[in-house]
Write a protein that binds this DNA or RNA. Sequence first.
DNA 1: GCTGTTTAGATGTGCGTGCAACGTTCTAAG
DNA 2: CTTAGAACGTTGCACGCACATCTAAACAGC
Lengths: 153, 153
Amino acid sequence: MTVLRDEGLDVRELEVWRALQRAQVRVARHLEAELLVAHDLPLASYDVLMQLAEAPERRLRMNDLADRVLLSRSGLTRLIDRLQRDGLVAREACPSDARGLFAVLTPEGEVRLADATPTYLRGVRTQFLDPLSEEDLSRCRAMLAKLGLTEES
Amino acid sequence: MTVLRDEGLDVRELEVWRALQRAQVRVARHLEAELLVAHDLPLASYDVLMQLAEAPERRLRMNDLADRVLLSRSGLTRLIDRLQRDGLVAREACPSDARGLFAVLTPEGEVRLADATPTYLRGVRTQFLDPLSEEDLSRCRAMLAKLGLTEES
DNA sequence: GCTGTTTAGATGTGCGTGCAACGTTCTAAG
DNA sequence: CTTAGAACGTTGCACGCACATCTAAACAGC
């Protein structure tokens, strides 16, 4: 604590941030582990498949996808490489913009996603939702909405 | 959404988890970037220094430290290697257990930590605390306490 | 004391990530 | 039409991580 005295006594507030970080990492690790053993599917891959499944036409531009998955563009390129190699996703040219590329969910990808989804949902529930009340969740939702609007830097 | 229909309508709940994930990563990335440009200090390194500074005698066993920093044991070994190379941390044998090693914060490490702390605190504040009310924070604190007790797997 | 088991840390290896640089295509200005 | 600049995605590179494995030390029972 000693080092943090200078800026007033928001050590308690800081503690909230650190606990949040810990909780998030803990749940994410749990999900990753379960998905890996049960479906040989890393969490990041699951996220990509899920995003694609939710998108119209089951396809998304690489750029948009990178934003939603919270991954760098280069990271997404490699990840899509792997998914394509495994046949879960295909690349398709964009008719209106020759620079653009769509990542498209293949039928096989859909199956894989459907298989893994129960595992994912169960993990989120046991590790995150179950311990919390309805009230907690709506509070949390409101909080996160506020955080989402703070864009700069 | 279509894929998630099977388990009832907790799509909204799932959304909370996903938003949390996004928020956490966003803030962490911001902190990492700021610490890097201003002090050439990765976020993980900052965490280690902070944990050591808060510990009695400014020292911690490798194992305990690994838990607090939310890093694998091997990851911590490498990170301490780097910090030791940079002179911010030293390794010291444990008198009572010859297997054990302490990671000790050096004076130079303290200075570096003190330099970086304002950057860190400012980041946490602008990206996380400022958008939230006092009420939000205490709610969040309570929520995280519940999550912290769900240990298994 | 002598073995078998457990624990603390350190390594070897492969993989995933971000950053910076690159080629390609689109768009706007002259 | 030509050229400058921006946008989209990919690639070279170095770094950091986790998993499995290994060594050394502590502890257990006999």
